[in-house]
Nucleic acid binder design. Structure first.
Lengths: 209, 209
DNA sequence: GTCTATAACGGGATAGAC
DNA sequence: GTCTATCCCGTTATAGAC
């Protein structure tokens, strides 16, 4: 059993704390406390709190980049799409601290703004690729103008669904279920799908009602 | 020309600063500086920064309450709906600081959480009332299960559209156009509307393409 | 009501020993 | 690599004069 490097433990604990209480509410002292190391030790590994955030963001960037490498000419099935959305929501959930205070975080670490915007763009074009695949396969019927709006809507929902869901349904259950988000996304596609695919989504959605 | 009360000037300036640079980045010193008054004077009128935020939130609450008093049995036209959405987006834009760092703000002033959630609920049920009016008039056709998802989607979009829009399209124009948000909302209804009403929305949307 | 101090605190970050 | 001690700074909030 090899010991995990302190540096990595710092990243891990920071991510955990950021997600649970919000990045602005997490002090470097809290992080070092959580790990039972000294603040000085933390600053030996990272020269600033911003560096920790930056490195976490880079991980997020890489995960998203890998996930969004959607082949442009493949025939994508609804099941594959659903699976893709699950992965997407899981990744977003893993780095949800970014989304919960988006403007604040991006304003304090301003090099992140353009990078974040790039990821947004990539998401939108990923959704577009998928929809166009559906269209080619004849299982989706939508006008070009509406397709733009749909892809933007999908991107927006992918961003904010988790925050919104935990905010508006906090009372009942605290465990947020990525499946509900996936359902919400599929539902956005629904009106434009062929009857058979519609039915398929109705069946899927049984689980979430 | 009557002099505006200092107390009100503080509220006004705070709102302006909160919106433009984010509430967490606005210090009480910055506010008093902006008004050319002393910090002490500010604290004469408000006993804490949280009180300023709280009072602004109360105004927001009232404006939303008035706006969302949708009559349950009226026949609402698409034009009225569009007008309603314009007002809604304007109000949200006026208090956009709340939305930009939602989790952060609500976590630091925690009495606001339940109040905010109440407003969310009211929004959703407002949308539901409107959709049901459309349904009664025979201009909307949608299943119950999908109606739930639609109303949630409308609420989510009403919350986050402005932030999302200014984030993802910052490069082109900085003036955010509430009309784009309204279009995005109308577009969500589109698939469920009768042909004639669809056409009406297509005409409306010309302005935003 | 408004001002000038200044107290009180917390958080980020560094120095230097071990 | 890790620790303790400390500095520095910004921010909230108060005291007390005018």
């Amino acid at each position: 059993m090899k010991k995990i490097k302190t540096r990595d433990r710092i990243l891990e604990a920071s991510l955990m704390l950021f997600n649970s209480v919000g990045e602005p509410n997490v002090t470097t002292l809290l992080i070092s406390d959580e790990l039972d190391i000294s603040p000085g030790n933390l600053y030996y590994h990272f020269k600033s709190k911003g560096d920790i955030v930056g490195e976490l963001f880079t991980s997020y960037e890489h995960e998203m980049h890998d996930l969004l490498a959607v082949p442009a000419d493949a025939d994508i099935s609804l099941d594959q799409q659903s699976f893709f959305l699950h992965l997407l929501f899981e990744t977003v959930a893993r780095y949800r601290f970014l989304y919960q205070d988006l403007v604040n975080v991006l304003s304090r670490y301003d090099q992140l703004q353009t990078r974040f915007r790039r990821i947004l763009k990539k998401k939108t074009s990923g959704f577009r690729t998928i929809c166009e695949s559906f269209r080619r396969q004849g299982i989706m019927d939508i006008r070009d103008g509406e397709l733009d709006a749909l892809c933007e809507q999908l991107t927006l929902t992918a961003c904010y669904w988790s925050s919104f869901d935990s905010l508006s349904h906090l009372e009942d259950r605290e465990s947020m279920d990525p499946g509900r988000g996936v359902y919400q996304m599929m539902y956005l596609l629904l009106p434009y799908l062929a009857p058979e695919e519609k039915e398929q989504i109705y069946l899927m959605s049984r689980e979430y009602l």
